[in-house]
Amino acid sequence: MTVASTEIQPKPKRKLWQMENWWGVLWVLPSLLAVMVFVYGFIAWTARVSVSAWKGLLADYTYVGADNYVALHSDARFDIDIQNTVIFTFVFVLGCLAIGLGLAILLDKGIRGEGFYRSLFLFPMAISFIVTGVVWRWLMNPAQGERLSGLNLLFDKLGLDFLVNSWHATPTWGIAAVALPAVWQMSGYTMALYLAGLRAVPDSLREAARVDGATEFQIYRKVIMPLIRPITLSVLIILGHISLKVFDLIIALAGKQVALDVPATYMWTTTFDGFFFGRGAAIGMVLLASVAVLVIPYLWYTLRQEKGL
């Protein structure tokens, strides 16, 4: 049927390879070449290294099949990495979504000095994860007893002793404490995205819902949230891939320790401290695959929507 319809309404024939087109190609050529070499070329090279026996300073491309991947599967440290990534992602993404949406809804109510608050909540994003990590390392000092400091000291002075805890030194769940600075840093960004989304919802829809007798909660739940679902999706993708790749925050806050290890830190230490290049490349490919699982459906979805326009 589609074939028939194109026959009936043939597209206006475009002259291919006009001067204008050549210019366009030339313009993107340098960046295209750079991307081909420095992104796709190196992905291919990393994939090759990940199936090699390369260990030590000099390259060794002996093909070993999936050995590096199989070894990761039974690697106790990689199990901890996965567990930590899951906990981190859960706390980080949910924290940002909840706080970001909450702030956006409050700001959308048209409070006075909205511009000030908007900047205030966005500012943490201007800081790098390294700086955030160092500052929060001091704030979340887990020392107990006489050596209390940072947030613990504040809790203690305010009489909130029950809140004093050992933060990232907590067994198993320490990584959740590491996610807190990340939430602090990125929830303002989430708020900005949501605020833009909320502003795009026409007032007439809210009013119509009110006329129909919907409560404020129902308006958000049934009218506004479905309308800003694409925003939620974007936020999930953006925060999700940051979370899977997190490295600098961990290094600055926790240093090199297995308890708070994530795939990216394992990849770095095993490659550059231990010279296990094959294993490091395999971890890199697993990371790439996990991000791809998240991003590719999203790209596909956006492309399809753009075509639809």
Partner: peptide
């Protein structure tokens, strides 16, 4: 060497978490 040391470092890190001497020695 660096490779051996980094593997021992991982083993010590895991031991600090679980305190399992037998697993430590295996590692």
């Amino acid at each position: 060497n660096d490779s051996w040391k980094s593997e021992i470092d991982t083993a010590i890190g895991l031991f600090l978490l679980d305190g399992d001497v037998a697993a430590f020695q295996t590692a």
